[in-house]
């Protein structure tokens, strides 16, 4: 038996860390890519990056790298900044001291102070790359600690749901913004080559992609890989399978009668990517496909809440 509040905190602890990792990776890739981009392309890329993180564009149209990095990393007014995500994750973890291992708490606590004590000037002066790698590693370490110190029970499954639902939604948004900006070529031509590498690297997918398709970067294949590949842990198909599996475990363990809706929604969406073909997706329109997918992710989130966290009292005895 698990308190709804605890399930809620586990879910958000994990979602916020996943989001922080995603933001850290996008910044790191961007700063690296800027070396190969014209100032104009760089500005456009910052714009797309903000868009893919749902961060409003600066009103003055200035996309200075230092300023953007500060905004996305340390700015507490930006609700999706790394410092805010990690701080929210820690707040949730504080509520969970009895439900997560001490090692997990110590790691998220360390991460919080690591970021809170850092200053944009110092990070910028030294190697921003090193800082963002330390953030990503800190979150990977948390995930590894989770996998090796926690009971694989309902608590663990809520962590999995949060992590992979966040991942599926953020990769979908990233793809949507990218494919809106670049036309589909049969082969990525030189000017845009860097951008396609950037997309893959933003999902830690460059090496994994090359192992499957070699360094032959083709937009359709990249979409296929990031959307439908069942083996690559940052693909949408992989993530949704994890969401579905975790929800099934939760339903089994909680024996909640309300589990049907989230399970049905997760199963339907997983089937959509499991049995989808990339050609058909492009034929009917990638944007429409991704928009539908993101909407369904939100439906799953709502359904999880209604089933496990904020269900109304009357329904309790109605069925």
């Amino acid at each position: 038996m698990m308190l709804s509040r605890v399930a809620d905190s586990l879910y958000w602890l994990s979602r916020y860390l996943e989001r922080a990792e995603h933001v850290a990776r996008l910044i790191d890739v961007q700063i690296h890519l800027m070396l190969d981009l014209s100032p104009e392309s760089s500005t456009q890329r910052w714009g797309r990056l903000l868009q893919s993180l749902h961060v409003p564009l600066p009103l003055d149209g200035q996309f200075d790298a230092y300023r953007m990095t500060d905004l996305l990393t340390f700015d507490t007014r930006n609700s999706n900044s790394i410092v805010n995500c990690v701080s929210s994750a820690r707040m949730n973890a504080r509520q969970l001291r009895e439900h997560i291992s001490s090692e997990m708490w110590e790691q998220v606590n360390w991460l919080y102070f690591h970021i809170k004590d850092a200053r944009i000037d110092a990070v910028w002066e030294a190697q921003p790359h090193e800082f963002f790698v330390s953030v990503k590693n800190g979150i990977h370490l948390f995930q590894g600690i989770t996998d090796s110190t926690m009971n694989y029970n309902e608590s663990y499954q809520f962590i999995q749901v949060g992590r992979f639902l966040e991942r599926a939604a953020s990769v979908a948004q990233l793809l949507d913004v990218h494919y809106a900006a670049f036309r589909r070529h049969t082969s990525a031509f030189e000017g845009e080559f860097v951008e396609w590498i950037g997309l893959l690297k933003s999902c830690t997918a460059f090496e994994a992609y090359c192992k499957v398709f070699m360094a032959d970067l083709q937009p359709d294949r990249i979409a296929d890989f990031l959307l439908l590949n069942r083996e690559f842990p940052h693909s949408i198909a992989f993530s949704l399978n994890r969401v579905q599996g975790a929800l099934l475990s939760i339903a089994e363990e909680s024996k909640s009668r309300r589990a049907r809706t989230p399970n049905r929604l997760a199963g339907r969406l997983t089937a959509m990517v499991d049995y989808g073909l990339v050609d058909e997706v492009f034929e009917s329109g990638l944007h429409g496909f991704l928009a539908d997918l993101m909407r369904q992710c939100e439906l799953i989130h709502d359904a999880i809440y209604r089933a496990y966290v904020v269900y109304p009292f009357d329904n309790e005895f109605a069925d």
Partner: peptide, 25 residues
Amino acid sequence: ITLVEGRDLLVHGQVLYMRTTAGMQ
């Protein structure tokens, strides 16, 4: 035993419940 906060508990028809993932307990 379960460690609860006030917000986990709820009174309904002169009975006290706590909100869990499996339903009201």
